[in-house]
């Protein structure tokens, strides 16, 4: 792998670290299998790219993407909590609707950002941005992801954050303690999808534009990152897990880049989804293999 490819993998891996944090909130904290993600990632990209293409400030465009994702997540939650639509189905409905909405927002299947300013061109000094190693974007992204991780850690330590965790872990107990679980599910899904849309917005700005199909498989990658992270750094503490899933996302990206760069394997980019599925499957059965291979501890324990 060249240094350039390394930095490229780092860049995309970090962006998907945000997706992983979003998926962590829905799947793990709230115990809500939310598939909206495949729609909210391109939503973030579409909103940000469209705003920027129309001349608005990239930071503003990114904030708008974040908000749009939040609205999408909130609606998924509302479908489930208020309209009693099954969680999986609520997410699928939103994901499906978002496909059309994203097309509407962009007005066409893709929205290139070539000469337009982005958060990267604005925030990074030219020397970092243009450095041949491509160090600038990963650095900025690492800072963004780290700040968001810390903010999330702080949020989940607050009274309302704790109530959100209880909502996912034991909703009946949470209600008995006066927690409005319905609201917290909606708020949690809003937060989750806002982060995913933020990732979409950054992805569009770092990869030269938004594309209607950029969301395909987002949920699988997010889940892969969460699962890899959890196996890598198993912990019951959320502070550790938020870090773990970001590492999981980066590692996942490295693995994919590596797999695709081995000419001997003959893999091409269309094999990406297969590689992902294979990778997740391997990580999932690893604990089983470990148990089988390791000598059993003395019985009676």
């Amino acid at each position: 792998m060249t240094l350039y490819a390394f930095m490229g993998a780092m860049e995309i891996g970090l962006i998907f670290g945000l997706v992983a944090l979003g998926v962590l909130i829905s799947f793990r904290v709230l115990n809500f299998p939310d598939l909206t993600v495949d729609g909210s990632f391109p939503l973030g990209g579409a909103v940000a790219a469209t705003f920027i293409a129309h001349g608005s400030n990239p930071f503003l465009a990114t904030a708008a993407a974040f908000l749009a994702g939040g609205v999408a997540g909130f609606i998924t939650g509302w479908f489930n909590v208020r309209l009693k639509i099954m969680d999986l189905l609520a997410g699928i409905l939103l994901m499906t609707a978002l496909y059309s909405i994203n097309l509407r927002i962009m007005g066409k299947p893709n929205m290139p950002l070539i000469t337009e300013p982005t958060v990267f061109t604005l925030a990074l000094p030219p020397i970092l941005l243009d450095s041949p190693s491509g160090l600038g974007k990963p650095l900025l992204l690492a800072a963004i992801v780290l700040v968001i991780k810390l903010l999330l850690d702080a949020f989940f330590a607050t009274r309302i954050g704790l109530a959100m965790r209880a909502t996912g872990a034991n909703p009946r107990m949470a209600r008995a303690q006066g927690v409005a679980t319905g609201w917290l599910i909606m708020a949690g899904l809003a937060l989750s999808n806002a982060l995913v849309a933020l990732a979409g917005a950054l992805f569009a700005q770092s990869q030269g534009g938004a594309d209607i199909s950029m969301g395909i498989g987002t949920i699988v990658i997010g889940l892969a990152a969460v699962i890899i992270g959890e196996n890598l750094l198993p912990s019951r503490r959320l502070i550790v897990t938020t870090l773990a899933v970001i590492l999981g996302a980066v590692l996942y990206r490295f693995f994919i880049t590596l797999a695709l760069s081995f000419d001997a394997l003959g893999l091409q980019s269309q094999d990406l989804n297969f590689v992902t599925a294979a990778l997740v499957s391997i990580v999932l059965v690893l604990p089983l293999i470990k148990r089988r291979l390791l000598p059993k501890k003395a019985s009676g324990g």
Binding site: A157, T158, R159, G161, L162, A163, Q177, G178
Partner: peptide, 14 residues
């Protein structure tokens, strides 16, 4: 969690 029963839940640390 129980200490906040019946109290508003806000962004103060739990």
């Amino acid at each position: 969690l129980a200490l906040s029963r019946g109290q508003p839940r806000d962004l103060r640390f739990a």
